[in-house]
Design a protein around this nucleic acid. Structure first.
Lengths: 222, 222
DNA sequence: GTCAACCATTTTGTATACAAGATATCCATT
DNA sequence: AATGGATATCTTGTATACAAAATGGTTGAC
């Protein structure tokens, strides 16, 4: 991972943060990171600003940039908001979804079925992401869609871990089918509630989340 | 406005953007801005990254930074999301609000009454902001509160303009009273709906918003 | 022996110099 | 006259040099 170009610095750093390669609370040394990336401190510091704005770094003046991994509490809070955003997307989408959107959604569900049958977690996740992004877009509210995408992105690593829990794939798939059915029926409440339940961390999902959180090793230094 | 220090550059720029001093689509010339702020291009460019992440700037590689004012559509979309976020804050707050929170909320309502009686828009806005921030915090979800604060901040200039519409102050105050009453009663649905209605752009509010938007001169170059 | 102040070292913050890409101008050609 | 291309100029992107601030260690006093 040696991006000569600066555009990649932000992405590379983000990757290093979310994968846990950089542990929580760790101070990022500008000089050594610059050397590692084969660039100077300038593009690095610009990336820091961007990452800090996304909440992935803490920028303390004259002290440095510190990796900021969400704690278990933060994660639960974020999922709570994610559930609400998705539910709202779904509510709007139920009214505004187009035939083309529905066709695309049906496709992703089929693709998810294939992936689930093959136990291909990576592919399932990719299609799962497409499914949700389609719903965000179908909300007809571009700002809402963008917010949802951002949060979705931030929760990505944890969601991926969750999907590896046994049986979760099939459950997720069944929920997708229910969401799609509600959308086709144009039942805003049903869509909204199905999505909320799909995202919300409740019941057994909390234990799954906690387990995957612990195994993520992101909580070092907390 | 000449911040010698770099921490102020971001704030100063943000102010210049939201006040409309910098018009929509305008390209920010690094050299001239640096000269104006009495600093070099380096801190400016770091501020650009931060502002771009907040959606106030568009950063086009090798082309420059362009001011990005929300169009009328964007604004309506943002208010739509704001209404939903506030409604959710209220729903949570109805369960979690503390006696101290309620006392503080009562204070702000009284302060709002004073300000409204004196037709002091600036003071009313300040207390109004405090009222809403208290509810965000009372939601007990720190992430949600932060998201709400950010969006609230971004909508600030438009909200201020809206409040200048005749009669809007008294209406807003009455709604605050209703929200507080619902919170005291612990009626989650009532709080949620009262807040949604308080924020949502609907009915006559849309015309007010449109009028204030036009008079904001932020839409130049669109 | 402990605490505090001072100095050295390290690290962040800023300015400037330089490189690379983009735009605009001017000239040649059709 | 219009178009296409080459070049000059300007702007952004990056590296480096320098300044300021913080940290850590050492020394001296109590």
């Amino acid at each position: 991972m040696q991006p000569r170009r600066a555009d990649g610095v932000r992405e590379a750093l983000e990757q290093m943060i979310v994968t846990g390669e950089l542990t929580n609370g760790e101070r990022l040394d500008e000089t050594s990171l610059a050397e590692r990336f084969g660039c100077s401190r300038t593009p690095l510091r610009e990336a820091f600003q961007s990452l800090a704005a996304s909440g992935l770094l803490d920028l303390v003046p004259h002290r440095g940039a510190f990796v900021r991994h969400p704690g278990l509490t933060d994660m639960v809070e974020m999922f709570e908001v994610m559930a609400e955003l998705e539910a709202y997307c779904g509510r709007l989408a139920a009214r505004r979804v187009s035939a083309a959107d529905l066709a695309a959604l049906r496709e992703t569900v089929i693709a998810c079925e294939d992936a689930a049958a093959a136990s291909d977690h990576d592919r399932y996740y990719a299609e799962n992401e497409r499914f949700h992004h389609l719903i965000y877009a179908a909300s007809g509210n571009g700002f809402l869609a963008e917010q949802a995408r951002q949060l979705h992105r931030r929760l990505k690593p944890f969601r991926r871990l969750q999907l590896r829990v046994r049986g979760r794939l099939d459950q997720s798939l069944a929920e997708h089918r229910a969401i799609l059915a509600a959308l086709e029926a144009g039942d805003a409440n049903a869509v909204s509630e199905a999505l909320r339940g799909h995202i919300a961390v409740q019941g057994g999902k909390f234990n799954d989340l906690m387990a995957s959180y612990k195994s993520s090793h992101l909580n070092a230094g907390k």
